[in-house]
Nucleic acid binder design. Structure first.
Lengths: 215, 215, 215, 215
DNA sequence: TATGAATGAGAGTTCATTCAT
DNA sequence: TATGAATGAACTCTCATTCAT
């Protein structure tokens, strides 16, 4: 009933791409708030202002719709995180820019973040895999920066395995802070990014200087 | 058909408590591997070697069953993490013991970890809340240790808010490493714990010494 | 499989209202013959020539379906009984017309009568209440006629309570005769109505003339 | 937990007949208040202070239990109604005694009345038939009295069919008044019986004197 | 293009009923 | 005698999905 209508009273015919984006927007919102299973195709269609068969016509099935959501949002996140980095910068500067972009994105797109972080991994393949791939890319990016840092100082005891572990820890810390920031809306994303830089990068620095914690 | 039978060929009658634990074991496994919705009560019952009505008789409903799983596993995790710590130890020693116990538990109970970390938060209330409460307790524990450390050195610029953020980052890093360790079965849990101590604790140390990262 | 199909062999698509009436028809029949609990939604749907989800989509739930049946049939009965009465007629004429319409309706809609008289009161609230309300209306109608009759003769010993009891007796006699007529299909409804008029109205007449039975 | 126990703390072993009556008491109560289907064997057993298998051992099945209830209560009602009548009395005296006994019984055993009047007929054979048989006996009794009355006056236009209809009307009026009396606990059963005698018997009298209502 | 009408398939849940002790 | 433990079988209800127009 709320669908956009033109002056003749007929339903407005929008180009396919626009309609698709509307549906994806609606789907992301529903999946984030209700969860994948509890979100019904009926509700998605209604929120998108379209009839159910349209959703099927454009997106195929509930699984494909969910996948399309995941892909779109994962792409956006990757773009934000890694896309705008200047490879000529120092590693810490690169990480800093990436993290800040990430926290900004999450703050502005909570539903998107919940779909990627909370929903997709819980519903098995192929959804979990899609997010896992994105996460792997991010971790690789972090690992690369850590590696650059290490090499630039000539320290080299750390294996690839060690670096990978550090990158995982760094990303996990970032994800957790993203959730935390969600509950503190007055926290500036840049501040959150600085917190993480201090927590993580400084710890790495220490290791590089040989001060190691032992039980 | 697969029910346990004794030599006389008759169905084994077990006391209620035993059967309940069997059902919870089966449920944790099914929920972890298939996901909450995809896991059917039929499958849970079959895996537990019991008929469906028994599951309902003892555990009430699918929701209550899931909650019971979450509560049991959350309790175990909390016990492992915070239960065996000696308050007389230095903060870093306390954290170290807790983390080691945590990584050991996760390594030995992957399904349990997946239920808590991957399934419960994805399915809304009351499940998410139950895990959130446990996580809050763990974060408080970590925050407390960080606080002790700060005070013992007389440094005091950090607000409670800052400490909370650090604790969230630390716990997030631990969760991420737990997942990572799951894919590296030959990694010793103690080693994983040491990685995290080095990544996190040393970073904190740095902060305490006043070396701060700035953009 | 038995659904109505047109010559092209395709499923007939009927407007919502028509389908709803078909479902109610089927439901009344099933509830009357099998009883509320023994009637399954599967059977109702099949008899209506529709799939089960349609019944749920249009009527909501088994309880709501039963209620809808009761309401429709109670409405029809009330209309038949009280709807066509001319208030200008003498009380006995009014009652006579009402009773005749009632016995005609019951003779032509046995299932409907059984749902109202036999099923609904046996299954507690809200079903019993719905029929009780209709019955109360009918009894009030009868009581009113009795009252008019009394007043028209200036006799006035009878309290409201007494009149109510008489009305209940009259209606109970009518219900019982309705059941009895059901087993005597060759009995003309008008005859049945006349029987009741003689049994009831004449008895009242007597009372009004002061001839009272005493133990 | 509330079962009767002797001093040794063991469950009291009561003779079979006593236990059976306890179970029937409990069953009548449950069937009357919840309805046949909604009453569960669990609840019946608990209310009777017995374990479920005992109910099955003594009464056979839910159907047989319900039948046993119906038979016991129908027997009591028949006894009350027709059992205490002195055949030497005049017909109106006989009817009066029977009705008074009936209204007394209903007033004191509401659950019993609801099982017979409300539940049994709603649940098909063999339950409905059992009550129908009892009702037939009562109607036959009434018809006989009416018949005696007619013959004693030498009036004989009335066929057996007519008399049967009158008896049905009389009994229906009685049933309806029984329900009505249930809602007016301060009404004396004898008064209710007198109401019915006046309503019914006097109406019959009229007919016998040739004053007939015509449309 | 767009949709109201319709359904296949399967889930959770609840009993009456019966073993095994 | 008496019962805690256990289940077969059904039933209500819900969706993702697809016709027919």
């Amino acid at each position: 009933m709320d669908r956009v209508r033109n002056v003749t009273g007929k339903t407005k015919r929008l180009p396919r791409y626009v309609r698709e984006q509307q549906m994806l927007d609606a789907a992301v919102q529903m999946f984030a708030r209700r969860g994948y299973h509890a979100a019904s195709m009926d509700e998605v269609a209604e929120l998108a202002g379209v009839s159910k068969p349209m959703v099927y016509l454009y997106l195929g099935s509930k699984e494909e719709l969910f996948l399309a959501c995941i892909r779109r949002e994962a792409g956006r996140l990757l773009d934000a995180f890694a896309g705008q980095v200047n490879q000529a910068d120092a590693p810490d500067q690169q990480l800093w820019h990436a993290l800040r972009a990430f926290f900004v994105l999450v703050a502005e797109n909570r539903d998107s973040w919940r779909v990627l972080h909370q929903q997709a991994p819980a519903h098995g393949e192929p959804f979990a895999g899609e997010v896992a791939a994105m996460r792997t890319a991010i971790i690789a990016f972090a690992a690369d920066l850590i590696d650059q840092n290490i090499r630039s100082r000539g320290v080299s005891e750390a294996t690839e395995h060690d670096v990978s572990a550090l990158a995982h820890a760094l990303v996990g810390a970032g994800e957790s802070l993203a959730d935390w920031a969600t509950e503190h809306p007055d926290e500036d994303p840049a501040t959150t990014a600085r917190r993480l830089m201090n927590f993580a990068w400084m710890g790495l620095d220490n290791l590089l200087h040989g001060s190691i914690w032992r039980p």
